[in-house]
Simulated assay, not measured.
Amino acid sequence: MARAANFSIRMDSDIKAQSEYVYNFLCLNLTTAINVFLRKSIQAGGFPFDVRLGSHSELF
């Protein structure tokens, strides 16, 4: 079994609260949700979703 490692992140307290609210409905805590995201990132070789800029008119 893999050893557990700890790390800490800083995030906006509102984002944390909203994320916990969403994942609680999925019966997950934030630690599990972050682990799922990281595992999916490894499988995808990057973000597990599209990351792109909107239209150029939105940038300026």
Rank of each mutant, 00 (worst) to 15 (best):
M1K: 09
M1V: 07
A2E: 11
R3C: 04
A4F: 08
A4E: 10
A4R: 12
N6Y: 13
F7P: 00
F7H: 02
S8Y: 12
I9A: 03
I9M: 06
M11N: 08
D12V: 03
S13W: 00
S13K: 12
I15N: 06
I15T: 07
A17M: 08
A17C: 03
A17T: 05
Q18G: 03
S19M: 02
E20H: 00
Y21K: 10
V22G: 03
V22M: 09
N24K: 14
N24G: 11
N24V: 09
N24A: 15
L26W: 05
C27W: 01
C27G: 11
C27N: 12
N29C: 04
N29R: 00
L30M: 04
T31H: 03
T31L: 00
T32Y: 02
A33H: 00
A33V: 00
I34P: 00
N35C: 14
V36D: 01
V36K: 00
V36P: 01
V36M: 12
V36Y: 01
F37V: 05
F37G: 09
F37L: 07
L38P: 01
L38K: 08
R39T: 13
R39K: 15
R39I: 12
K40I: 01
S41K: 01
S41L: 10
I42V: 01
I42M: 01
I42H: 09
I42Q: 06
Q43G: 11
A44V: 04
A44Y: 09
G45W: 12
G45C: 09
G46I: 04
G46E: 10
G46C: 09
G46H: 07
F47S: 09
P48A: 08
P48H: 08
D50P: 07
D50K: 03
V51I: 06
L53K: 11
G54R: 07
H56T: 12
E58H: 12
E58A: 13
E58F: 15
L59H: 14
L59I: 13
F60Y: 14
